[in-house]
Amino acid sequence: MNEPQTLLAIENLMKKVIQKTYRWQDIESDLSELRNDAKLIYDSNRMYSPLIQAYFDLLPELIKKDDEDIFSNHAAFKQFQSGLRKEHKSFLRNNKNKREFNWEPLRTYFEDMVRHHCKLLLVRVDLNYPSETHPGVTKFDEHMRVLLKRIHDKDTIFEGQIGYAYRLEQGGKSRGYHCHLLVIYNGSLHSKDSYYGHEIGRLWKEKITKGCGGFFNCNQASNKQRYRNKGTLGIGMIKRCNEKSVRNAFNVIRYLAMSEKADQYLRVWWKKKSQFNMAQNPWKGIDPKKS
Rank of each mutant, 00 (worst) to 15 (best):
K139A: 12
Y196E: 00
N217R: 05
K284Q: 14
I10F: 03
M14V: 07
L7S: 00
R175C: 08
V123T: 07
R93M: 07
T209G: 04
H116M: 09
K173I: 10
P288G: 12
N95W: 08
G160M: 05
I52D: 00
S188F: 14
L121I: 03
K205N: 07
A262D: 13
S82D: 07
V125E: 01
D57P: 04
N251K: 15
I157V: 10
V146G: 03
N2R: 08
I41W: 07
C118V: 12
P105W: 04
V252N: 11
S194R: 11
G231Y: 09
T138Q: 13
A38L: 04
G160N: 09
L182R: 00
H117P: 02
L127K: 01
R107K: 12
G160Q: 12
K173L: 09
D57I: 12
I157S: 01
M237C: 15
N277T: 09
L59F: 11
D126V: 07
Q220V: 07
W270P: 04
Q280E: 11
S90D: 10
Y177C: 01
K139C: 09
S44I: 14
G197I: 05
N2P: 03
F250S: 04
K86G: 06
D112G: 08
K272V: 15
P50N: 06
A257W: 01
L233P: 01
L59R: 05
G136P: 03
L127W: 05
D66R: 09
G234A: 09
S191P: 03
A165V: 13
K244P: 02
Y195Q: 15
N229T: 12
L106C: 05
A76E: 13
F250N: 03
Y177H: 07
P60C: 11
L62C: 08
V17I: 06
E28C: 06
C241Q: 12
E104H: 10
D141E: 13
D43R: 15
M237V: 14
L168E: 08
